[in-house]
Design a protein around this nucleic acid. Structure first.
Lengths: 199, 199
DNA sequence: TCCCGCGGACGAAACAGTCCGTTCACATCG
DNA sequence: CGATGTGAACGGACTGTTTCGTCCGCGGGA
């Protein structure tokens, strides 16, 4: 959908996306019908199809928005780092903080990863983030801050720790304390460091 | 559903579960209809509802089966380990190997984690596995093999690395080589070790 | 007066799940 | 050994509901 929108229209579009985000996150994408969204907002179905071609396109738009926001946050964090390893830590902390602050988006990402229709678009963005991380890791290896290794693989390992721990936070299994983030960062950095001083 | 099954019935039930596993993994749970399953198998709808109360119950049965199989493999691996840290490594390797060998089950787990209806049952089992791992970690801490820390949190960190890397393997981003598993194990063990020898 | 934004009835399709008659495997008995 | 019985297993039409997406007329602000 590609329509010329007035201020009012822009707001309506955002309202639809915000409400749908909440419903999708709580109920699931498939079980949530378009009617449920429009009725929840007290509007007619015409409104929905004025702004979006389909439910699928709506989710895609939501995911793209969320991804953009996350990437912005990551980039900002990494750009202000002194050394590569500082960059790794800053990126890690920024990612975890963002994911903890946006449970609905996080959940939508998780779902989208299981559905090829959405995964495709998502992976492209994830690849960019992973490549960024891998570049920082490669720089850190170059600088001798960490031992050599497969930078892509290690980036994914970091992402995995990050993601899974945040998931537990949202499930209430772990508390979203600073200690948790510190522990995660410590685990990751030492994982990267390998054996710093072979005894 | 709780029916007395003959040999023939037992086989039919397994056939339904196997076919549904493949369809759910490829197409997604919601987009796959009961009719699609029965037609794919060339049987009537009566057959489906003879063995399962609903599509939901079918998935639950599949997940329970898969989880049982995974747990068996983990337990077998850990039980044959000499020391706690050996147990950690063995469990890690067993989990990754199983997950790589069973892409469909893995994918179904991923989906189930995003849907509260299935997540509930799944988490119970995951908790058991995590608790097992945490116990091994606690033992390793006791034995001075690794520094003290939150065993539950660390178990989840391990699980996160494991899960995310396997996901990349199934996506074709990473190759399922021994090197990959070795690198993952190394990352995890060093993450656990923290700083073994402060330089 | 445009036309963006909107309401909601509507069509067509798909869906989960039911129902009931039929068939198959095997046991029991005359 | 053939007739009869029994219950598991099955086929597939059918029901009632829900779904997505369209259509078309209305209104109010620029």
């Amino acid at each position: 959908m590609d329509r010329k929108l007035t201020q009012r229209g822009e707001e309506r579009r955002k309202q639809l996306m915000a409400y749908a985000t909440a419903r999708f996150a709580q109920n699931g994408f498939h079980p949530t019908s378009v009617a449920e969204i429009t009725e929840g907002l007290g509007v007619g179905k015409g409104v929905f199809y004025w702004y979006f071609d389909s439910k699928e396109e709506l989710l895609r738009a939501i995911l793209a928005d969320a991804q953009l926001d996350l990437r912005r946050r990551q980039r900002a964090a990494v750009s202000g780092a002194a050394s590569p390893s500082d960059g790794i830590e800053a990126g890690l902390r920024a990612s975890m903080a963002w994911s903890i602050e946006h449970p609905d988006y996080f959940r939508l990402f998780q779902f989208a990863a299981t559905d090829d229709r959405f995964n495709q678009g998502l992976r492209k963005g994830e690849q960019v983030a992973v490549n960024d991380a891998a570049k920082v890791l490669a720089a850190a290896m170059e600088a001798g801050e960490i031992p050599d290794g497969d930078a892509t693989l290690l980036s994914h390992a970091l992402l995995g720790v990050n993601t899974h721990l945040v998931q537990q936070v949202h499930r209430g299994v772990l508390a979203p304390s600073d200690d948790l983030i510190d522990a995660a960062v410590s685990f990751c950095l030492h994982g990267l460091l390998g054996r710093p001083a072979p005894a």
